Structure formats: C-alpha cells, structure tokens
Amino acid sequence: MILYLVGTPIGNLEDWSPRALATLQAVSVLALEKWTDTAKLLHHFGLRPEVIVNYDDRRQKTATAKILTWLETRDVALVTSAGLPGISDPGAYLVAAARVAGHQVVPVPGPSALSTALAVSGWTESVWFVGFLPRTRGKIVKLWAQAEALGSNLLCFESTHRLAKTLALLAEKHPTVEVFVGKEMTKKFEDYSVGLAADFLARLAVDKDYSRGEFTLIIHFGK
C-alpha cells in the first residue's frame, strides 16, 4: 500500500492544491501531527477521515507501529501542522520504516516556508537549511562561523520568544551581515523585510507586535 506525504498550507488555506485535497478525500486513514491545527483544514474543506492516528515527536515509534499495521490493508496520508512532513516536522522515522516494510512512499508537495522565503529574499544560491537554531549561544555562534566560512546563506526558523535574542546576537557577532526576515508568511499580517540585525532590533523597540508570529530567517553569508 501507499504512504502519502501531503503538504499543507503554511498559512493561507487557499494555497492548498487540488491534488492534496483529492488525496485526503481518497484515503480513509489520516496520520497527523496536531489535531488542533489540522482540524481547521479538515473543517474548511469538509473532510472527515474514517481513522485518525496522532503522529508527533513524542509518539513517533508507537504511532509508526499503528500506521504500519494500517498500511497492510489501506493507503495512509500523513500531514503535519504546516508544510511538508519530515522538513523540521515529524515524518522521517515513519518514511524509513514504511520503506523497510515494503510500502511505497509518495509525496504530494505543497506550500513550503523554505522555497517561499528563498524566492522572496532573492538569495537563492548556496543555501544551508538548519531548521531551528541550536539552543545555546556557543552552538549558534559556531554554526554561523561555519556558514560564513562556506559562503552559504543560512536559512532557519525562529520562534516569537527567541527572535529578539537571536537578532541581538547576530548584531553583536556579524553587525554588517544582512538578514531576511519573513514574518507570518502567506497569512493576514505577512511581512518580508531585509536589513541589518540592528535595524530589526530598532523596529522591535518601537513595535512590540512585530515579534508576534512565526519567523523564517535567511542570514546572508553567501552571494
């Protein structure tokens, strides 16, 4: 049977493709990362899967066993809260297990924070995607030094709570390096800006609402 990896909108529900919708209409078993996020999508498109399996970072092993059992008799679709499963989201463990078990894995691509940020930044050459930055200052600084040595534009995700701290560290260590900041991409209050880290810190100082939301950064160490 087939495991479908179905991309979901990163913000705007109208970005979902007809093929993705048709896939979820066709399967009876849906594995999802977080019910509260996927419920909005299902309700918007009138989808009611027969079987739902919770598949998040904490349940990967136990959920994979359940999904493999379903795959013996039915096709299964996997979705995460936003974007394509396995890209800074759960999915890789299940994909590997499904292949070992002899099942076909088929992607149904959709909106992507990576490609969206790259396209609107204009910095599309020599890109290093690292997901979320490390937690410690030392590891972040080391990662930036590696990207600078490679001449790679470093693409990462950042949370509301860490944005100011990350920008302050960037302003300290790389004050002349430009950074692209994509905020709430494809959503109602989307914003795309390029500047120095100090510029964004100044913006945060006068606009407290700017730090609210989801952020994608590209640090311009490359061309």
Rank of each mutant, 00 (worst) to 15 (best):
V95Q: 07
A97H: 02
A97Y: 06
A98W: 03
R99I: 06
R99Y: 04
V100S: 04
V100N: 00
A101H: 06
A101R: 05
H103C: 00
V105K: 00
V105R: 08
V105G: 05
V105F: 00
V108E: 07
V108I: 12
P109F: 06
G110A: 04
G110E: 06
P111W: 01
P111T: 02
S112Q: 06
A113L: 04
A113E: 07
A113T: 02
L114S: 07
T116D: 08
T116C: 03
T116Q: 06
A117M: 11
A117P: 09
L118C: 07
A119F: 11
A119T: 11
G122S: 02
W123I: 06
T124A: 11
E125L: 09
E125Q: 13
E125A: 12
E125R: 13
E125K: 13
S126V: 05
S126P: 00
V127Q: 09
W128P: 12
W128R: 14
F129D: 08
V130G: 01
V130T: 07
G131Q: 00
G131A: 09
F132R: 02
F132A: 03
G138E: 10
K139N: 10
K139G: 01
K139H: 12
I140F: 12
V141E: 12
V141S: 11
K142L: 15
K142V: 13
L143S: 13
W144Q: 10
Q146C: 14
A147H: 13
A147P: 14
E148L: 15
L150C: 15
L150S: 15
S152Q: 15
N153C: 15
L155W: 12
C156Y: 01
C156N: 05
E158Q: 01
E158A: 09
S159N: 13
S159W: 13
T160M: 13
T160Q: 15
H161A: 12
R162Q: 07
R162H: 09
L163A: 09
K165W: 10
K165Q: 11
T166R: 04
A168Y: 03
L169P: 00
L169Y: 05
L169F: 00
E172R: 03
E172C: 05
H174S: 04
H174L: 04
P175H: 04
V177R: 00
G182W: 00
G182D: 05
G182K: 08
K183V: 00
K183N: 05
E184D: 10
E184K: 00
E184C: 09
M185S: 06
T186R: 07
T186P: 00
K187D: 01
K187W: 06
K187M: 03
K188E: 11
K188Q: 10
E190F: 01
E190W: 06
D191W: 10
D191G: 04
D191Y: 09
S193Q: 14
S193N: 11
V194F: 08
G195E: 02
